[in-house]
Design a binder for these strands. Structure first.
Lengths: 213, 213
DNA sequence: CACTGTGAACCCGTTCACAGCA
DNA sequence: TGCTGTGAACGGGTTCACAGTG
């Protein structure tokens, strides 16, 4: 790693995911031609970015390219996987066995990237003990112990807005490292726990704002 | 409207949604006390923002507050609804009747905000003609005509990555105004069509990056 | 006195432009 | 020659600090 990952813009990380996705696509499509290298211009064109930005983003982490040639596809892919932590397995739990929970459990992108859904947790007696797409549904009150004993590092919050903080607290007690919060509730936890929010209403309201102009 | 909505940072729009959410919550919780006003400091505290930022965001659109007092909750709520276009009804269609599609159809936040799901579209003969949470599933090939005749302004893309561009093109042909794209595909359309991307893998990969440091 | 509205300063990410190298 | 890596310039969003006002 070139730098100690300090002055790196946080949006750069999002883009690394996008570049990686782009390389995956190249691998699939061009299975025959088997392109060996790709330029920042090509990546930019495929992803809708600016070439300079692509180069700068990548340069934060090393000198992966060759001047006059471009980036070796295979190697760049490996490096991106390493940087993003996709070369490891990650245990995650999902709190909330609703529709969104189900969508996430079945989401193929997860397994592909080493995300291993270890359990789903809910408070509904009707659901506890059942399975959702091969994964067992546990009592939400067991989530703390589960996280602890099974060494789960990532929790996904898809519970109701009003129970979100309470469940997040349980996750924190269990020693969770990061939470992906799909509820519209602003979660407060010790700052060493990484929280990332995804809010579907916000996304739609952005659109209506611009349509409404 | 104070300004012509030009020099307004695009992230400000996201935050307006968050402030609005915060006001809604106040309305629910304090049903008895019925607070009349709220300060930028309180909003900031509830949402995890900076007070100056709250004030600046709101000031882009008018002078909603009173010095020494704060913002009148009811009125600010009304104004935010107006700004975000939530005082109107919006017709949306969902392309893709998978799990995520289902989660979105059932998502309560939609109806609450005037988002009216008019139809779901899929290419699976097994699904076409059936219903998903009260909404009829149509043949994906009819989406263009449907958008046109029913005057649908927003399309949600939850199809497979490889058919995403094709379906987006159909939407565009039908005269869609904005697309919320949940697929990992970079969609290319005329620039007058607003596209907004939400990518679940990216969100998770952000977390693994930071856990991996 | 408390809190808003806002110009100015600051900070950070993007883009440019070019030196450096295969 | 073609394309990377990067310092410098730019632009835009955030924060500060305070004047203005109920």
């Amino acid at each position: 790693m070139k730098q100690n990952r300090k002055n790196i813009p946080s949006i750069t990380i999002n883009r690394l995911s996008i570049y990686y996705r782009c390389l995956e696509k190249l691998g699939e499509i061009e299975g025959k031609k088997k392109l060996k290298t790709i330029s920042s211009f090509k990546i930019a064109e495929m992803t809708g970015m600016n070439p300079a930005q692509v180069r700068k983003d990548l340069a934060y982490f090393g000198e992966f390219g060759k001047r006059g040639i471009g980036y070796p596809i295979d190697n760049l892919g490996r490096e991106l996987r390493k940087i993003l932590g996709l070369d490891k397995e990650w245990s995650i739990v999902i709190a909330g066995a609703g529709n969104l929970g189900k969508a996430l459990v079945d989401y193929k992108g997860f397994k592909k990237r080493g995300f291993n859904v270890r359990g789903i947790f809910d408070n509904s007696p009707v659901l506890i003990g059942k399975k959702m797409g091969n994964i067992l549904i546990y009592d939400i009150n067991e989530i703390e112990k589960f996280i602890q004993t099974e060494n789960v590092s990532i929790g996904v919050l898809v519970v109701t807005a009003h129970s979100a903080q309470e469940v997040a607290d349980k996750m924190a007690q269990g020693g969770i490292k990061a939470i992906l919060n799909f509820t519209p509730t602003h979660i407060k936890l010790p700052s060493d726990i990484k929280i990332h929010n995804v809010d579907l209403s916000i996304e739609l309201e952005r659109l209506t704002y611009y349509l409404n102009m």
